[in-house]
Simulated assay, not measured.
Amino acid sequence: MADKKTYKPLDDLLKKTGMTFKAIADKSGMKDYTLYRLRQRPSKMDQKDIINIADATGIDERKISDITLFFARKVDKLQRNKAS
């Protein structure tokens, strides 16, 4: 069974807006593949990305930021420990 390529909590948050990922990317001023990569590794989002996505979707910036922080602390850390 293949692993999910994107981070489900972020996908779920974005899907709640009722917008497609393409519409979110367009309204955020980024390419589709850029949003896809950020959905794969939310810890790669910078403040500008968070603000643009929040403005485009109406999602509170803190919710997006919390997801990116959790990903960096837990998921990235687990992946680093597996590689060691």
Rank of each mutant, 00 (worst) to 15 (best):
K27C: 02
S28D: 11
S28R: 12
G29H: 07
G29A: 08
M30S: 04
M30H: 04
M30E: 00
M30I: 13
M30Y: 05
K31P: 04
K31Q: 10
K31I: 11
K31V: 14
D32S: 08
Y33E: 03
Y33H: 04
Y33N: 01
Y33I: 05
L35H: 01
L35F: 00
Y36W: 05
Y36P: 04
R37K: 12
R37P: 01
R37M: 09
R39Q: 02
R39Y: 01
R39V: 03
R39P: 00
R39E: 01
Q40A: 05
Q40N: 06
Q40C: 06
R41F: 00
R41W: 05
R41N: 12
P42N: 02
K44Y: 04
K44D: 00
M45K: 01
M45I: 03
M45R: 03
D46Q: 06
D46A: 00
D46M: 02
D46R: 06
D46L: 01
Q47W: 10
Q47P: 02
Q47I: 10
K48L: 08
K48R: 15
D49S: 08
D49Q: 08
I51N: 14
I51R: 14
N52Q: 15
N52D: 15
N52I: 14
N52K: 15
N52S: 14
N52V: 13
I53E: 14
I53F: 11
A54R: 09
A54T: 14
A54Q: 12
D55Y: 09
D55K: 15
A56C: 13
A56I: 15
A56T: 13
A56M: 12
T57W: 13
T57P: 07
T57D: 04
G58D: 07
G58Y: 09
G58C: 11
G58R: 08
G58F: 09
I59M: 08
I59G: 07
D60Q: 11
D60T: 10
E61I: 12
E61P: 01
E61Y: 05
E61N: 10
R62N: 12
R62Q: 14
R62T: 12
R62M: 12
K63G: 03
K63I: 07
K63D: 14
K63Y: 10
I64M: 00
I64G: 00
I64T: 02
I64C: 04
S65Q: 15
S65V: 08
D66R: 12
D66T: 11
D66A: 11
I67L: 15
I67V: 15
I67P: 06
T68D: 06
L69N: 12
L69Y: 08
F70A: 13
F70W: 12
F70M: 15
F70T: 15
F71A: 05
F71D: 05
A72F: 10
A72V: 09
A72N: 13
R73F: 05
R73V: 09
R73E: 08
R73G: 01
R73N: 11
K74F: 09
K74P: 01
K74I: 08
K74T: 10
V75K: 05
V75D: 03
V75E: 08
D76P: 05
D76C: 06
D76L: 03
